[in-house]
Design a protein around this nucleic acid. Structure first.
Length: 266
DNA sequence: TAGACAGCGCATTCTC
DNA sequence: GAGAATGCGG
DNA sequence: GTCTA
């Protein structure tokens, strides 16, 4: 039982409660606890053994019980009960970028869409745009997102990610007056793998820096591009060979919020 | 045991 | 078309 | 659900 497994389980409970329309504070409680477990330095199994789960901020009696059950038995009844309330496939929809709990709920309840294939079909036949909150753009974006999802986006080795960060750094520095650049997130926490990369930057030319970022040659897709925050999908060479995809976010900070930003994103 | 609970940038859609 | 509202994601 | 007053 790794911390990450426990965290995933708690996140999933939060998502399921969210889709089911449960109280939002319960929902955020599960996500908050999940994040706390993610960021733990100690092994959650050890904490269970020592009765120290309560020391984790955001983990109270109810969630501590659930973690204990999972760590000691390898299963979590509550998670299984919740999961049983969804047709198989529905929860997969959450994996598509741009689809969150609210959209899953709508797709499922209003259109009877219970899996990826159903979603794709509906989008192709323009059945989504009739629903409130969905439009032409959303339809097109979802089709693209489904494709990207199918291509798969595994976690990257920290080493590969470091290479990528270096390449991006060089690119940015050659095109804008970068005063500071650092990777935050799991990268900074020295994990062996990262699910994405967050890059924090300070610069005297915000526009140029951002333009350079989204114009990085290996960028395959720009998810969003704003004045101070952008998100892209980048192709990189894996150490083990072959091309892989990784999401990279860039945020531009002003000098005085550097410390806070680093803290926040890590 | 009651009441508070993080805040924000971006994209898109909704509403007027 | 502008500004508000909503959802997503980090 | 969790935390604080």
């Amino acid at each position: 039982m790794t911390n990450d497994e426990v965290a995933i389980l708690l996140h999933e409970i939060g998502d399921m409660l969210d889709i089911l329309g449960e109280d939002r504070f319960r929902v955020v409680s599960y996500h908050r606890a999940a994040r706390a477990v993610e960021g733990l330095t100690a092994d959650v199994g050890d904490l269970v053994r020592d009765g120290k789960l309560g020391d984790i901020p955001g983990v109270g009696t109810a969630i501590a019980e659930k973690i204990t059950e999972y760590v000691t038995t390898g299963r979590l009844g509550y998670h299984e009960e919740l999961k049983a309330r969804f047709p198989p496939g529905v929860l997969d929809l959450l994996q598509v970028r741009g689809i969150g709990p609210k959209k899953v709920q709508i797709l499922w309840q209003q259109l009877g869409i219970t899996d990826l294939a159903g979603l794709e079909e509906a989008a192709k036949h323009h059945r989504l745009r009739r629903i409130k909150g969905f439009g032409e753009k959303t339809e097109a974006n979802l089709l693209k997102a489904i494709e990207t999802y199918r291509q798969g986006q595994a976690r990257a080795l920290i080493w590969d990610a470091a290479q990528l960060v270096d390449a991006i750094r060089a690119h940015l520095e050659s095109r804008a007056p970068i005063t500071r650049l650092e990777a935050a997130g799991s990268f900074r926490r020295m994990r062996e793998t990262v699910g994405d990369v967050d890059i924090l930057v300070t610069t005297r030319d915000v526009k140029a820096a951002m333009r350079a970022f989204t114009a990085f040659p290996a960028v395959k897709q720009v998810y969003s591009e704003g004045e101070i925050k952008s998100s892209v999908l980048v192709e990189y060479d894996a150490y083990t060979g072959g091309k892989r995809l990784l999401q990279v976010d860039l945020e531009i900070l002003d000098a005085d919020s550097w410390g806070a930003g680093l803290q926040y994103f890590t």
